[in-house]
Amino acid sequence: MMIPVIVAENIVTRFGNKVVHNGISLHIKEGEVYGLLGPSGCGKSTLMREMIMLETYSEGSMTVLGKDVSNISPSSAQELRKQCGVLFQSNALFTSLTVAENIAVALQEYTSLSQKLIQEIVAFKIDIVGLNQEDGRLYPSQLSGGMKKKAALARALVMDPQLLFLDEPTSGLDPISAREFDNLICKLKEMLQLTIVMVSHDLNSITTTLDRMAVIDHKKIVAEGTLEEVMAIDSPFIKTFFTTYSKYLR
């Protein structure tokens, strides 16, 4: 039996008077690629930000890797952060550091390994995301959009996290780079045995990379499951969203 990595129970999120989530429950199993889908502004990113402790929810409970994130001591929160890698939508690479330094910074801070081994680990991460070793010396402003994504992914993977969060990983990439990126995600998941949580709008990545997904609409989860299970559900958003997809297939 697979162990759930993230369990959310009846999450309610309010910003002032505005209710964003009204009783969201989901569970994400170990080793799967899980997608959070839904129309713009439905709170997908907010839900993900709650999982990585950047925002707090108003009611309900959420456990990540067996820890309750709303009631967690600073030190175990720090432990949890080391087990999670996050790729932000705008990459959020540190502009004052080179790519290699961006990747190495967590190692420098959290481990006392020798510089030689750190450099080797950095070279390895640069290689697995498909960048050239020479790119390590460049600054983020010298990189193209796709390279920035890859560099940010390498940084997210540096601590060998069990959980990887991706916020719209293929947005802003051309279709070819986007497919390449999807393949990369699948490959990395196999190689590093990751559990991946991803917010996405890209139909192609949804159909090719996701194992399971949750569709959020009208503050609730309208569907959770595999692509077939989700498509079988009668909801206006799912209908319009996936009709484009079936047209696409033909």
Binding site: T98, A100, E101, A104, K116, Q119, E120, V122, A123, F124, D127, I128, Q133, G136, R137, M191
Partner: peptide, 15 residues
């Protein structure tokens, strides 16, 4: 195997 395939020995990124 995987690490071996992707490693670059004696790499230095210092400017």
């Amino acid at each position: 195997e995987m690490v071996k395939a992707h490693s670059h020995k004696e790499k230095s990124f210092t400017a």
